[in-house]
């Protein structure tokens, strides 16, 4: 085998390895989609079918009837989390990158530590605190709790981005007589659009996908996001797999949409938040 042939063979081998990895990575998603079209009999037949066997829309009918409200709830919680994250994080990140303040080092260190705190620790306390101030079973309570996933990350990512804006920009605006707020609102925020979108996308996915705070803070009836809806289908002895798969398919929709629409924001957010932040 000569050199050229060998490198060509190597390339095909790499493609094959990558393909295998992708199949493993994507198979669960595929299985959900196939499973969501299977009939209950097929799902309980004890045989796994790689392709839909006697496809039916029954599961989707069941789930749309039972979970429509929950999907709307999740959408609302996701949007609320994104909004809260932006209101809190954008000005804070600006201050932490462009103003000389004594608290900066302390606050940035605190944010790094906040990212480490496990959600169950917060959930246990927040449940009782919320109980006390009547935020249990409420949208504001859930959104404030879901913000704990998004806000430290958001501030750190946005701060890293603001460092890339030249200080001359702010100086010029001030010389032109703009107030600090106007400089922020009219010059800094528009320039930070891509970083703001990244942060909003992640905050939305955090709010949409949250389970632990929904499970603890929403104890009882009333508000129920899709993640809790799926959980209630998991019985101790038997699980309605058709309904689980169809609602899981719905729960995966935002991830799919973001992957198509906001691909570059997602990739940049994943790396920016952890290494360069």
């Amino acid at each position: 085998m000569n050199r050229l042939q060998r490198s060509r063979a190597l390339r095909w081998l790499c493609s094959l390895a990558a393909l295998l990895a992708l199949v493993i990575v994507l198979f669960p998603v595929y299985a959900v989609i196939v499973g969501s079209f299977e009939s209950t009999q097929t799902l309980f037949s004890g045989t796994y079918y790689w392709l839909p066997h006697a496809a039916t829309l029954d599961n989707y009918r069941t789930v749309i009837q039972a979970q429509s409200g929950n999907i709307l709830t999740s959408l609302f919680v996701g949007l609320g989390t994104a909004l809260l994250a932006l209101v809190v994080a954008v000005p804070a990140a600006y201050a932490l990158s462009k103003y000389r303040l004594r608290v900066t080092v302390f606050l940035v260190s605190s944010l790094l530590v906040c990212q480490i705190v496990p959600s169950i620790v917060l959930a246990t306390s927040l449940f009782i605190v919320f109980h006390w101030i009547h935020l249990v079973n409420s949208y504001p309570g859930l959104i404030i709790a879901d913000g704990t996933y998004a806000i430290p990350f958001a501030i750190l990512v946005l701060r890293a981005f603001f460092f890339s804006l030249p200080n001359e920009l702010m100086h010029a605006a001030r010389v032109d007589g703009a107030s600090e707020w106007q400089t922020f609102r009219r010059i800094v925020v528009p320039l930070a659009r891509s970083a703001v979108i990244t942060v909003a996308v992640f905050a939305f996915l955090n709010g949409w996908g949250d389970f632990i705070f929904a499970l603890t803070i929403l104890n009882g009836s009333g508000i129920q996001p899709i993640t809790l809806g799926i959980y209630t289908y998991l019985g101790n002895y038997s699980t309605d797999w058709g309904a689980v798969m169809a609602s899981a398919a719905f729960a995966m929709v935002p991830a799919g949409v973001m992957l198509v629409v906001a691909q570059r924001y997602i990739a940049s957010g994943l790396t920016a938040g952890s290494v360069k932040g």
């Binding site: 990895a21 992708l22 949250d210 995966m252 991830a255």
Partner: peptide, 30 residues
């Protein structure tokens, strides 16, 4: 390394990271 399909592979590999964790748990149970 350079091989056909690597850009697509790279962008799709992050899928597990975007799914709600409870959904992942349920899928693996299935």
């Amino acid at each position: 390394l350079r091989f056909p399909g690597r850009t697509l592979g790279r962008s799709l590999i992050i899928v597990p990271w975007l799914l709600p964790l409870i959904v992942t748990g349920v899928i693996f149970k299935f």
